[in-house]
Write a protein that binds this DNA or RNA. Structure first.
Lengths: 115, 115
DNA sequence: CCAATATGCAACCTGGAGGTTGCTTAAGGT
DNA sequence: ACCTTAAGCAACCTCCAGGTTGCATATTGG
């Protein structure tokens, strides 16, 4: 399973990078923060309070949507956005595997030094 | 503690975004992959196998270093880079808090629907 | 001391991220 | 029907990330 973990880490690297990149922006993190509660919000609602334009917010939402962390559905005259936990669960899992890896490595190195 | 979690989430958002951004690049993720093992590598060693220039790799390393996920020390004529787990532990923690938040939200919503 | 190796520094190029403005189109409310 | 509100589309601007090339500097081995 250790080899499976390693290979899946490498295999998923390309899939993880875009998700990390999407989270690498304060505006987008704050948009997500509003959506973590599970409720849907329209673009106008998500724009409220921000100093940015509605179009700017729209672009950010498209970025988030492109990596699947958010899902928008046109409903009537407004399009409602909803949080989708899957992609972030995956990078959380990635970080879990990685941390497991470095913890083992560090304890090996420590043991080697103490020897 | 729930309120503390929320406020620290907001307070740390600005601190997390740059780390996520630094991880949002495949080249940098693969550099990190070589460093998870705990061993130090020189820039030349890290450049080996890559299709990129040494200078490109250097720039990526500086990005990683600027968010503290990697630490470089000049040793003799080469500068050795070493992985530092702290920043990634923090975003892992962030994702943990967030997932806790959305899980609670989803169960509340589910309960509401079932009611 | 000299040649090779490892890195640093700086200028430069290019594409795309992040933002704005202006106009169009679709839905709702009355 | 009409006015308002929500959103989409498209052109445009600016700036910086990511990469390259060329040259300068520091260490090391013999």
């Amino acid at each position: 399973m250790s080899s499976r973990s390693r290979s899946s880490l490498a295999a998923r690297r390309e899939a993880h990078a875009p998700v990390f990149a999407a989270l690498g922006d304060e505006t987008r993190l704050s948009l997500l923060a509003k959506l973590y509660g599970g409720h849907r919000f329209s673009i106008s609602q998500l724009t409220e309070g921000s100093k940015l334009t509605r179009q700017a917010i729209t672009k950010h939402l498209r970025v988030l949507e492109s990596v699947g962390v958010v899902h928008g559905v046109r409903t009537g005259r407004e399009s409602l956005f909803e949080f989708d936990p899957k992609p972030m669960r995956e990078i959380k899992e990635y970080l879990d595997l990685v941390s497991e890896q470095w913890d083992q490595a560090l304890s090996r190195l420590k043991l080697f030094v103490e020897d």
